[in-house]
Amino acid sequence: MEILTKLEELILLAVWKLKEEAYGVSIYKHLQKVTGQKMSVGSVYFPLDRLVKKRYLKAMKGEPTPRRGGMSKRYYLLTDAGLNILNETKKVNDTMWDGYTALKEKKVRI
């Protein structure tokens, strides 16, 4: 099984959660909300392209709106392979995190 990068993993999860509403802006906003991190828009697109290339995601052309300067959206859908890899990743993550309890010690500021 292939090990995804954290960003790829997060993006796949975001697409799964957003269902039919998963396109560039919504994915980006969702990620920003969950992680609380500021990131550049571009940083979402390269992993998205990569995931499409690996066939975990499927891209579909959507409707153009005036708000987008007349350009169409590009929706992403999770493929079966994408679902599979998410399941496997979850399994690995669970195993890895098993038995871990949140540390009580002082937080180390990075």
Binding site: G24, V25, V41, P64, R67, R68, S72
Partner: peptide, 16 residues
């Protein structure tokens, strides 16, 4: 051409 949607996304966010 495959970045065409990105162009739209960016304009949408700009409006937001």
């Amino acid at each position: 051409s495959d970045h065409y949607s990105y162009f739209g996304d960016i304009e949408e966010m700009y409006n937001d």
